[in-house]
Design a protein around this nucleic acid. Structure first.
Lengths: 251, 251
DNA sequence: ACGCGTTGTTCCGTGACATGGAACGAAGTT
DNA sequence: AACTTCGTTCCATGTCACGGAACAACGCGT
């Protein structure tokens, strides 16, 4: 029924099979893979066997999952790895100061990709996942990135319909533009229930020299949201990280 | 010169290209990839182009790096993801209590694979990397895993030559067996400069029900190593995580 | 117990497409 | 300017991926 991105070279088919697992992640049966990819069952059977052989897929009984080799390779992606490594101490500081959920994200096209997310025992219900992407327009990290990535990008984003994750997500271009301007003067992005109901967020951009390379944020249950206490911590972490990156991390 | 694992299906060749990046990670030129894989240049050229098209490889100028899609897929590997998520709060506690480098690892075959590694501003020089694997026999996490994974595995490991990461790594089977027995009675694994010079480590196994699913550790510069203070923290974190996993995480 | 729907799996003739040697052009090196 | 080494394109060859059809192994409802 799905008639997904179907065929082409063998690689594309293999990729299509692996793509089935994002973002659902969950184990799939052969026929589910066949249906989701639009590929005939024997083809999926053979390819899946090959992928298992390579360690890219794992198979227990009749269920397929992503394999350990992908985790290994994914951990080596250089830009992600380096940035995460240098950012981690600052994220830890921020966590220790606030004891709330911390995010680190970079921009990729018109979306934000999360590189790290740390939290304590009380886990918020959030749409963000490490490695996952969300719209720039309705997340704290995304808005911080967007506000400091040049006017062309802002125009590009505003020229399209604005996606929304919750009823509070900003869908009016004019309102978003105003919000971005406020972010530019204050250096901090606020977000209230635009990404997840009941959760507010405050974010700050991270610079390497004069280009925006990332943003970090702290997400808080709405009931506990007190900008006066969080803002200095977030700003401090972002500035500290930016100072270390000044020499730094290549694009 | 390398005559690596050469050819076969197209997937194997593509995998061979990607494997070039572990653990070096660094960017490679076309001819380097050709040499390392043993594949002819035109073949690598075509495959690399396909991989770039899929987002598995990135190309800037004439240099190839691993692509963002791999990071995304790697973050979805279920066993890794779930365990890391539930373990994170306990790792944070342990970090906050010790302010030292924390590791979380699982066993995969005869090696330990690290799922998480958090640290502060002072980063130790360690061979461990997230997603990377090391021998079970010369790391704290590895020894904790090995000591609680059954006698057959111990015999299997001891029947082979013991690898070493430093001159202090244990290479005598008898000594290792004794060390493992001590770990079994104390519930804690000690490791002194066996993985990296100047670094000591104390680790504890993590159970889900009655099976060992992971181990966590704290690594400390030898000068600061004081087991009396670290041991209770490590044990507490491991027990806390085990308690949460009791219901839990499937194999 | 039986039949039916659905699953995972094997088989195999066909042809699409990956293959890699050879040739080319573009840098960088001596 | 002659040479080396790189990335890239071309194309005739034959390999190997392809997927329909047939088979086997469950699970299920009555």
């Amino acid at each position: 029924m799905s008639r997904n991105n179907a065929s082409g070279s063998m690689l594309e088919k293999a990729a299509a099979i692996l793509e089935c697992f994002s973002p659902s992640g969950g184990p799939f049966r052969l026929s589910e893979l066949s249906e989701r990819t639009g590929l005939p069952k024997p083809t999926v059977h053979r390819l899946a066997a090959d992928l298992v052989h390579l360690g890219w897929l794992e198979r227990s009984g009749h269920r397929y999952r992503l394999g350990g080799k992908l985790f290994e390779l994914g951990s080596l992606v250089p830009h992600r790895l380096d940035l995460r490594e240098t950012a981690l101490p600052f994220l830890q500081d921020l966590f220790e100061a606030t004891r709330e959920t911390i995010h680190l994200g970079v921009r990729e096209g018109l979306e934000v990709v999360y590189l790290e997310r740390i939290h304590g025992h009380e886990a918020l219900q959030l749409p963000s996942r490490i490695g996952g992407s969300l719209p720039l327009t309705c997340t704290g990290v995304g808005k911080a990135l967007l506000a400091f990535s040049g006017a062309e990008l802002t125009d590009e984003v505003l020229s399209r319909p604005l996606p929304s994750l919750t009823p509070h997500s900003i869908t009016d271009p004019a309102r978003l533009r105003m919000s971005l301007e406020k972010i530019q003067v204050s250096g901090l992005a606020y977000e209230e229930q635009e990404a997840a109901p009941g959760v507010s967020c405050i974010a700050a951009p991270v610079f390497a020299g004069d280009t925006t390379v990332a943003a970090l944020s702290v997400a808080v249950p709405r009931a506990r949201f007190s900008p006066a206490q969080l803002a200095p911590a977030v700003r401090t972490a972002a500035l500290g990280l930016s100072r270390v990156l000044r020499g730094g991390v290549g694009v």
